[in-house]
Simulated assay, not measured.
Amino acid sequence: MTDKNAPKKTGKKPTPKPAAKKATPSRTAARKTAPKSTPKGKPAPARKSAPAKKAAPKKPDTAKAAQSAAQSVTDMVGEAKRAVGRPAKYSDDFIPQMIAYFNIETERIEEVAVKGKDGLPVTDKEGNVLMEKVVVKNKFPTLERFAARIGVTRETLHDWATAVHRDDGPLKGSLIRPEFSYTYARAKDLQAALLQEGGLDGLYESRIVQFALKNLSGWKDQTEQTVVADITTTDATALDDIYEEGIRNSAEAKQQVLKRKLAGIIPGQAGATGQAVHDADDEE
């Protein structure tokens, strides 16, 4: 008997079956693994990464921290000292510097570039900048500004100028720096001269000039002198009145004495006494 399911024999050889192709993921599987699409115009959300493990905190080194803090404080103090600076020591070089600083005029002449309407310098055909001479007001010199230039204060200048020898000896009570003291006085005189000249020329504000001259040179207002003159005149008038009243009292006293004398010489004769009194008045 023959098997019905057996393949029929043919004269041709059986062809080998092709190798099986690798399986490709199905569309449904691809849809499951592919990220969900985001709407247009919005960026895709970033994937969350697994949180990193936190390292165990290290124990702070207290000794090292204290040392670092101390060093920071030292640096800050050093910077502050460098910013302020130490006060300058006295030097005889300050004498010519002070004279040069205060011995100036109220104005000076400077050569500056000519500027056009646009504010830019004007040049000639060859490209050279045109220059002109103008009068510039000098800044009023002050003791405070000079002290700041040499690194001290105004009080220091005053102390240098007024310091005296205190030790027992032939120099006790004399100035330690007489040349600087003289220069300090000259600086104040030069200030007063500038104030007078600038005030008369209208370069300085009049109220500031008056205030400065009162403090620097001891100036006084005219009204104070007028008050003193009025007081002196009043005192003289009062003295004249007292003198005239004394003269009148003296004349009356003389008449009374004369009347008493005459009354004693011719008693009981009123007429004669009265006539003698009239004669005495005429003599007076």
Rank of each mutant, 00 (worst) to 15 (best):
K8F: 10
G11P: 03
G11I: 01
T15V: 11
K17A: 13
A19P: 02
K21S: 08
K22I: 05
S26D: 12
P35Q: 15
K36H: 13
G41L: 02
G41A: 02
K48A: 12
S49C: 09
K53E: 12
K54V: 03
A55T: 13
P57Y: 12
A65H: 09
A65V: 14
Q67R: 01
A69L: 12
G78I: 11
A83D: 13
G85Y: 02
K89T: 14
P96M: 08
Y101E: 09
I104Y: 08
E105Q: 10
R108V: 12
E110G: 04
K117H: 11
E126A: 07
E126R: 07
N128D: 06
E144M: 01
R149C: 05
G151E: 00
V152F: 04
V152E: 04
R154S: 12
A161R: 01
T162G: 05
A163M: 02
D167P: 03
G169I: 00
K172S: 10
S174Q: 05
P178I: 10
P178R: 10
E179P: 04
T183Q: 03
T183M: 04
Y184R: 01
A187Y: 00
A187R: 03
K188G: 10
K188W: 10
A193Q: 14
L195N: 02
L195C: 06
Q196G: 07
E197T: 14
R207W: 11
I208W: 15
I208K: 07
A212Q: 14
L216I: 06
W219P: 08
D221V: 07
T223K: 13
T226I: 14
V227L: 12
V228Y: 10
L239T: 13
G246R: 04
I247V: 10
R248V: 15
E252N: 13
Q256T: 11
V257E: 09
L258A: 15
K259A: 15
K259L: 15
I265D: 02
P267T: 07
T273Q: 15
E284K: 10
